[in-house]
């Protein structure tokens, strides 16, 4: 690791000032991606601003029609929340099945979405549920937030504070895990909402995306059989040592059906 200055502000206001003042500052959440990046000397920030001491970023609330989760809530905390489990069981299952227990004890919602790994699970939930991302500067829809591979709409000194998820009628997440890391080779989040069915896919492409043809078929009839014969184009999908683009396209259809079957 290269040297850096380390600061652990106790409030969001202090963190906002610290990241704005730093020459080339980087925010630190649980460090599950950032620490390995620093160890490999792939980044050389002047300052690390650790968000781990800011209690206000950890809250998990369910009120009226929304679940709101603080950016620093860990995957384990989201998975263990009875309120999340009751309101959106699919989201609870997703959080409980990220990586392994030690990763879930440190990894956070804010860190996961800000990193926007193409194989991360949370982006599928945010896009399918039509979540709103709150930052120190503005509010963004999930569709505007996730821009591309490892790329988001965040500015360099902008901090994600929370994400709010409208509670759907029902929702489920199914993923084909990479057997070593448990990241999604393909993950499909399906939600039935007042505004219609929404299907979001992670792991398959450079960044999370929706599948309008699947959504239209589910709007006609919300059943796994409605997806029979439907496929997605492999042209834009990822090919790597884990799976070819054609195989990923196949998995998207299979896992979309499984998610629908779980809740219909």
């Amino acid at each position: 690791m290269y040297e850096f200055n380390y600061q652990a502000p106790a409030s969001l206001a202090d963190a906002t000032k610290a990241i704005a003042a730093a020459e080339d500052g980087k925010l630190l959440a649980g460090g599950m991606t950032l620490v390995p990046t620093l160890k490999q000397r792939l980044a050389r920030p002047s300052d690390l601003i650790d968000l781990g001491r800011i209690a206000e970023l950890k809250a998990i609330k369910v009120d009226g029609g929304t679940v709101t989760i603080g950016a620093m809530a860990t995957h384990a905390e989201v998975g263990a929340s009875a309120a999340v489990q009751q309101a959106i069981p699919g989201l609870s299952w997703l959080a409980s099945n990220i990586g392994d227990p030690a990763v879930r004890h440190r990894g956070t919602l804010g860190g996961s979405i800000s990193n926007n790994d193409p194989a991360a699970d949370y982006p599928a939930a945010l896009l399918a549920l039509g979540a709103t991302i709150y930052t120190t500067k503005r509010q963004l829809s999930a569709a505007d937030f996730f821009v591309g591979m490892f790329e988001t709409a965040l500015e360099l000194d902008e901090i994600v504070t929370a994400v709010s998820f409208p509670i759907p009628e029902k929702a489920a997440y199914q993923k084909f895990r990479n057997p070593a890391s448990r990241y999604a080779v393909v993950g499909v989040f399906v939600a039935k909402t007042g505004g219609g069915a929404r299907v979001a896919v992670t792991g398959a492409g450079p960044s999370v995306f929706r599948v309008p043809a699947f959504e239209a078929a589910l709007d006609r009839s919300f059943a796994a059989a409605s997806l029979d014969g439907l496929t997605i184009d492999a042209g834009e999908l990822n090919s790597d040592i884990h799976a070819s683009a054609d195989y990923r396209a196949h998995l998207v259809a299979v896992f979309a059906k499984r998610a629908v079957a779980e809740i219909s």
Binding site: Y6, A8, L28, G31, M32, V35, P36, L48, D50, G52, A76, D100, P101, A102, V103, H105, R106
Partner: peptide
């Protein structure tokens, strides 16, 4: 997980945590 220790009662990989944290 060879580096696993408990931090405030929870299992954590100590190769991926700064001592400052």
């Amino acid at each position: 997980g060879a580096c696993l220790v408990h931090v405030d009662g929870k299992s954590v990989k100590s190769c991926t945590m700064l001592v400052a944290q």
